[in-house]
């Protein structure tokens, strides 16, 4: 039995970590910029990357359903197990809900999303200013919650590594596949 995640799961995890970190940073900075061609470009890139994350999450969920992750260490109390599962479920939920809210917001604001400038993503909603503003607040709130959950996620991983000294962090790291 290997306690490690599959290489595909690891790749997805770290690729998405980089993309999500970039998306959060881009999202929070781009909105404060004065209107300029660069701002419009950044918005487009944000939307393209966001749609990419959404597709990656779908693939990741399918992979996870067919490749069970290694079990949590035995020493974990029931409460902690529950917290870990709930935290991961929430992360997946937010990784789906955030891009969805971004897409719907863009539709309602009348700015269609065209993936990488090539593939038009249909607008499910008609242009509606109030709905657009509401969805913008939803997108922002979900992101703030996401940041909080990510902080908890990283904190938990570090606690496992440095305090519990178990393999919860290392089994997701890119190297160390040999250790048992």
């Amino acid at each position: 039995m290997t306690p490690h995640y599959t290489p595909v799961a690891k790749t997805l995890h770290w690729l998405m970590a980089v993309l999500l970190f970039g998306l959060l940073a881009l999202g929070f900075t781009m909105t404060d910029l004065p209107l300029s061609p660069q701002k419009l470009q950044l918005y487009s890139w944000h939307k393209w990357a966001g749609v990419t994350v959404f597709l990656l999450v779908l693939f990741r969920l399918a992979w996870r359903a067919t490749h069970r992750p290694p079990p949590l260490p035995d020493h974990l109390p029931k409460m902690m197990r529950f917290a870990a599962h709930a935290g991961h479920a929430l992360l997946y939920l937010l990784m789906l809900a955030i891009p969805l809210s971004g897409w719907l917001m863009s539709s309602a604001k009348g700015f269609q999303t065209v993936w990488f400038g090539v593939l038009p993503i249909p607008d499910l909603l008609d242009k509606d200013k109030e709905l657009g503003d509401l969805l913008q607040t939803v997108h922002l709130s979900l992101n703030l919650l996401f940041v909080a959950v990510i902080v908890g996620h990283i904190g938990a991983a570090l606690k496992h590594h440095f305090i519990d000294r178990d393999d919860v962090l290392t089994r997701m790291l890119p190297t160390r596949n040999l250790e048992s």
């Binding site: 419009l40 487009s44 009348g110 700015f111 269609q112 999303t113 065209v114 400038g117 090539v118 038009p120």
Partner: peptide, 8 residues
């Protein structure tokens, strides 16, 4: 067209 997207 803005970034290749039709705008109205």
């Amino acid at each position: 067209q803005q970034m290749g997207v039709a705008m109205e």
